[in-house]
Every structure is written in structure tokens, then in C-alpha cells.
């Protein structure tokens, strides 16, 4: 695979930000800067301005008063979040979903790619790919609609569970079924598409390595262990860093669409709580404090995972 650094500088050219250099550069490259200008404006408006909106977390924000005039309250919202009776439950639910994904969905996707790599028939391989990518393109609303349908007392999932438990109660009303349902539907929707990146990495492994391994007397299992896995390990590590960096931000879309007060016990996560408090109850200051807490933890996790991986495996995101 080609080596391109994240920033893609030409090697050897050391850039000096002197006044003369800037002047020369702007004169020569003004069209280039014109080309990125729209993106810069969009990001300032819709990414950086909202970041500055985080001052709300330290204010008793009132829409009428705006950021400038709303009274500052320091860490009041953070303190009340930590004292919130739901705080332990929200953190636990968020981490549990992430942990399940990390321990089940994440390795399963890699296994899927490895097994797919062993399929010898080209046609069969293509069929598997076409069919297994498909659920990824179904919208979350439709997937949720289908899940609701399958979880009704006459739905196929309820019937299947009923075979073992003799209980035909709607699955979405039983807290203990939420996590398996969330993870399972996530795997159904994402495993095929998620495996693409590993399939691509597998295709990039030098075939000579396999030939050398065969000469050394390695069987298929040994080849997988000593050639294939090391070959895709940078990809795995990068994906792992990204995964750890988003541990605290479990996607809220599916949760918001499917949960109900009966299963808040396991289903309510930080982001769905932020949604309820902020968007539905218009409690802006408090909810952005919760969301800020969440972002900071995420950023810290991403940084630590990246640092650790740099030390241990020499692979890093930045």
C-alpha cells in the first residue's frame, strides 16, 4: 500500500512562515485558497461556532439573553450531573453497549473478513459481499420499523425467543433483551460493510509472504496466524483506536427510535439523555454540560489509545 502521511507534505521542503513566504504563496496559490474557502466557512459556521457554544455548559443559558448576557454559573451543571440519580445508570449503559460492541461486533467483523478471504469461488464471494453490504444502506428509521415489527408478540424475534423461554412478551419491553437486540441489529446492519476495510487490507498483503510461508512448511492456520494477521494488524489497530475514542458516544439514533420508559434501565444512554434534556425539555445549559463531559472523556480516550498504540505497536492515527 502506498505511504501517504496524514498531512501529505513533500519530503524535504521545510516550510517557513515568514512574511515574504506568505506573500509569495498567496500570490501564487490564491485560486487554491479560494477552492478551500467554502469548506472553511462551512466548518466555521457548523463545527467551530458550535464548539464555542459550549460556554452554555457554564451558563444558565436563556435563549432570550444569548451567550453574552446569560449568567455564568461555573461548574454548577457539571456538579448537578454528577449528583444526578441517573448518572451511574447512564454511564453504565453507555459503557456496556460500547464494551459489548468492542468485544463482540469488532472481532466478529474481522473474523467475517478473514473467512470471506478463504472463500475460493469468485462468484460466491461477490454474492456474499453484495448481500451483506445491503443492510448498511437501509435507513435507521426503516431498520427500527422492522425491529419493532419483529419484536411484537407475533414477530419472528419474539417467537424465536419464545421457543426457549415460553414467553411471548414484546421484546422491547424487557430491559434484559435490549443490549443483545442493539448489538445484534448493529451486527446485522454493519458487519458486511464494516468488513470492507479489512478485505481491502487483506488484498494488500504481499503474496510472496504466503509463498515463503508455504516453503517454510506453514499450513493454512499458521499462515493466517503469522502472515495474514500481522498484515492487517495496522488496520485493526487504527480501527481499535477509533472505536475506543468513541466509547462514550454510542450512536443515539437507534436508541431514540426504539427505546421506551419501560427499558430505560438498560437502554438510556448519555446521548439519548442529552437529547431528552436539551432538545425535548429545552434545558440547554445542563444538557450541554452533560454533552461536554462526554466529548472531553471521548477526546481523552482517543488520545490515550493513540499514545498507547504508538508505544506498543508503532501504529497511530496522528
Amino acid at each position: 500500500m502506498k505511504k501517504t502521511t496524514a498531512t501529505g507534505t513533500a519530503a524535504g521542503t521545510y516550510k517557513k512562515f515568514t512574511f515574504a513566504a506568505i506573500k509569495k504563496d498567496v500570490k501564487r496559490n490564491w485560486t487554491i485558497y479560494l477552492m478551500v474557502l467554502p469548506v472553511i466557512i462551512l466548518l466555521i459556521l457548523f463545527a467551530y461556532l458550535p464548539m464555542s457554544g459550549l460556554v452554555m455548559a457554564f451558563q444558565d443559558y436563556k435563549p432570550k439573553l444569548g451567550f453574552m448576557k446569560s449568567p455564568f454559573v461555573g461548574f454548577k451543571h457539571f456538579r448537578s450531573f454528577f449528583r444526578d440519580p441517573f448518572f451511574p445508570r447512564l454511564v453504565r449503559n453507555t459503557l456496556m453497549i460500547s464494551l459489548w460492541e468492542l468485544l463482540i461486533s469488532f472481532p466478529l467483523t474481522i473474523v467475517f473478513a478473514l473467512l470471506l478471504n478463504e472463500v475460493r469461488s469468485k462468484g460466491f464471494k461477490r454474492t456474499i459481499q453484495t448481500v451483506s453490504y445491503m443492510p448498511y444502506f437501509i435507513s435507521m428509521v426503516v431498520v427500527s420499523g422492522m425491529i419493532l415489527d419483529f419484536c411484537k408478540s407475533k414477530g419472528v424475534l419474539t417467537q424465536m425467543v419464545g421457543l426457549f423461554t415460553n414467553n411471548n412478551q414484546n421484546i422491547l419491553s424487557i430491559p434484559s433483551y435490549w443490549r443483545p437486540l442493539y448489538i445484534g441489529s448493529g451486527i446485522w446492519q454493519g458487519i458486511g460493510f464494516g468488513s470492507i476495510i479489512y478485505v481491502a487490507a487483506l488484498a494488500g498483503i504481499d503474496q510472496q509472504l504466503y509463498e515463503a510461508a508455504v516453503i517454510d512448511g506453514a499450513n493454512r492456520w499458521k499462515q493466517t496466524l503469522h502472515v495474514t494477521l500481522p498484515g492487517i494488524s495496522p488496520t485493526i489497530v487504527i480501527m481499535l483506536i477509533l472505536k475506543i475514542g468513541s466509547m462514550m458516544s454510542v450512536g443515539y439514533e437507534k436508541t431514540i427510535l426504539l427505546y421506551n420508559p419501560q427499558i430505560y434501565e438498560t437502554a438510556d444512554i448519555i446521548s439519548s439523555y442529552v437529547y431528552r434534556k436539551g432538545i425535548l425539555d429545552s434545558n440547554y445549559g445542563y444538557s450541554s454540560a452533560v454533552s461536554f463531559f462526554n466529548s472531553v472523556i471521548n477526546f481523552a480516550l482517543l488520545f490515550m489509545a493513540n499514545k498507547l498504540s504508538k508505544k506498543l505497536t508503532d501504529t497511530s492515527l496522528f
Binding site: 466548518l43 461556532l49 458550535p50 464548539m51 457554544g53 443559558y61 442529552v274 437529547y275 440547554y284 450541554s288
Partner: peptide, 18 residues
């Protein structure tokens, strides 16, 4: 400037209010 927005954001509420 661009990739930083992939790693950190103001969160749902700040975005909504802005």
C-alpha cells in the same frame, strides 16, 4: 483545521442552539 472537527465537536445541544 478540517480533521480536528472529526475528533471533537460541540455536541448536539450547542449545535442545535447555534
Amino acid at each position: 483545521f478540517i480533521t480536528f472537527t472529526m475528533m471533537f465537536n460541540g455536541g448536539m445541544i450547542a449545535y442545535y442552539v447555534i
